[in-house]
């Protein structure tokens, strides 16, 4: 399988490369990986090869980032990725039961820690560490959106708005 970037992505990557000094294009790596993941939902080996070529580095230089940074994914996730904060302030505000409830609604395992996806590929859920919104816990994200003080009924609402 090869990777065919859209024109948008190509443009974005060339723009990103201008943000760093001439001899330091490797700096663009993380931003380029974000751009790929935003477009395709994950980062395939082929995409890494393409991106490495654009940046002028080795694919390995990108692979070691994908395996290090928790937000980057090598595999497709659900259409909606839910991240539930598990760190102390949210845990005190009920983050654990929020996660449990979401899992039971989605028929997923509440004891699992890593990313898990529903059979129909619509939802993925995972725990995340402190999301910097601790005053309004429990906090969760649905794709890029933050949701604060998420009660059970609010969680239902969030799920039902996901088409």
């Amino acid at each position: 399988m090869s990777f065919t970037p859209s024109n948008n992505l190509k443009e974005e990557v060339s723009e990103l490369l201008t943000h760093y000094p001439e001899s330091e294009k490797r700096s663009a790596s993380l931003m380029v990986l974000h751009a790929i993941q935003e477009e395709t939902g994950y980062i395939s080996k082929e995409a890494m090869q393409w991106a490495a070529n654009e940046i002028g580095i080795k694919p390995l230089n990108l692979y070691e980032l994908v395996t290090f940074y928790p937000m980057l994914r090598e595999e497709k996730a659900g259409k909606y990725v839910l991240k539930v904060c598990r760190t102390l302030s949210c845990a005190l505000a009920g983050g654990m039961s929020l996660h449990k409830n979401l899992c039971s609604k989605l028929k997923l395992d509440p004891a699992a820690h890593g990313l898990q996806t529903t059979k129909d590929g619509k939802f993925s859920i995972e725990f995340s560490e402190c999301l910097a919104s601790c005053g309004t816990g429990p906090v969760m994200m649905c794709n890029d959106n933050f949701f604060e003080a998420v009660s059970n009924s609010k969680a239902d609402d969030i799920l039902s708005k996901c088409e």
Partner: peptide
Amino acid sequence: AGAYICGEETGLIESLEGK
């Protein structure tokens, strides 16, 4: 991209260098 250690200033610099 989701790693706490990027807040430590030298970790942050390495990360900004694409590592």
